[in-house]
Design a protein around this nucleic acid. Sequence first.
DNA 1: TGTCCAGGTTAACGACCGCTAACGGCCTTG
DNA 2: CAAGGCCGTTAGCGGTCGTTAACCTGGACA
Lengths: 221, 221
Amino acid sequence: MSTRTDAPTRREQILREAARLFAERGFHGVGVDEIGAAVGISGPGLYRHFPGKDAMLAELLVGISERLLDGGRLRVEAAAGDDRALLAALIDGHIDFALDDRSLIILHDRELDRLRDDDRKRVRRLQREYVELWVSAVRRLHPAPAEAEARAAVHAVFGLLNSTPHLGPGLPTRAATEALLRALAHGAFAALPADGAAGSGEGEPRSEDGEPRPAREVAGG
Amino acid sequence: MSTRTDAPTRREQILREAARLFAERGFHGVGVDEIGAAVGISGPGLYRHFPGKDAMLAELLVGISERLLDGGRLRVEAAAGDDRALLAALIDGHIDFALDDRSLIILHDRELDRLRDDDRKRVRRLQREYVELWVSAVRRLHPAPAEAEARAAVHAVFGLLNSTPHLGPGLPTRAATEALLRALAHGAFAALPADGAAGSGEGEPRSEDGEPRPAREVAGG
DNA sequence: TGTCCAGGTTAACGACCGCTAACGGCCTTG
DNA sequence: CAAGGCCGTTAGCGGTCGTTAACCTGGACA
């Protein structure tokens, strides 16, 4: 039941504004007075809803990690073995998330180290499970030589999809942004080596017969 | 001119450690005492080399932006009109940078807002010029329907390449990481819609390889 | 109507942080 | 040897920040 019809709670207001401010100026760069002012109350009034500033960040990060993982698991079930559809669904879901909750996406990989140890471990575990969902799907589609390579590729595609904050108001419509990110993500995965080591530098389509080439030299030294 | 052979200056030590600490814990999360301790002096001794903490961040960000742009311009000249080689060289150069200076890459898009106004404008201008180098190369190769789309794609690929910090010690060798990132970046660009106005003479037939095209409903408006 | 409590308020405390002040060795130079 | 700049040191100031304390208020309710 995630359908919300009633007005947002004061707690939810605070969380939303805190996420926005943390993403804009960094966790340490935002004072509790600013967060309070953003929701119409002032400073210490926040402590009626949260035990402290850290708790807000923790709840934000745990919440986003859980929602990502839950969404991913749902898609795994819905795909029912169709790995190609699964990867597409994971990509679409992540894009939706990145576009809907830009602030949280920023916090997710930027302010993790500001958490208390147990919270950080919890978030890390959730993130790892989410990544593993992607990794196993990618590996079944693209049997890369090593699991580490698939995992690195997944992280890289996360970086691509999470570039949303830097896009600004570039693209005209949200649908256009979605379509672009989707195409880029699929293109990146499609470049994964299907057999040996990573792809070549200049030949853009992966060559299933070529020897794994060493690193290309940079033009111009 | 810029060839360095002698040992690193105390200034350079400070900058390197400051970059590392800022990247790890955020600009506001690092005290001057920590930076001093990281180079063997303590706290206020830093003020013999920098007018303030802000100045360190400014010098780091301006420096990285200038180096990125200079490197990009060199590659533009070296490519001498070969857009395919140019894009490959830009990608390789950016990968080198992301792998060599992980800390700076993090700071580059994370702590920009902590700068004074004039410094921030300067960095933004340098970043914009660097992006434009990529955008024009990409547009000549892939006549996307809109410049905004090409620019968004470039930002997204930056996000992909800059995912290095999240990779941890995943890949065995640096060469493997380079090759992987290179392949992913090329794959992403290859997925850009190539139709446009068909201004390019050679229609690249790289989409006929059996892979199902990613659902690319280009938002008509 | 009296009581209670959720949800605010302002004042203030203690810790921390960036930065300055004042001082002192060391190395170079004449 | 004397002078002076370079490069450190420690002490401390002023401001900010997270948090707590104490108090206030409007509405729910027996």
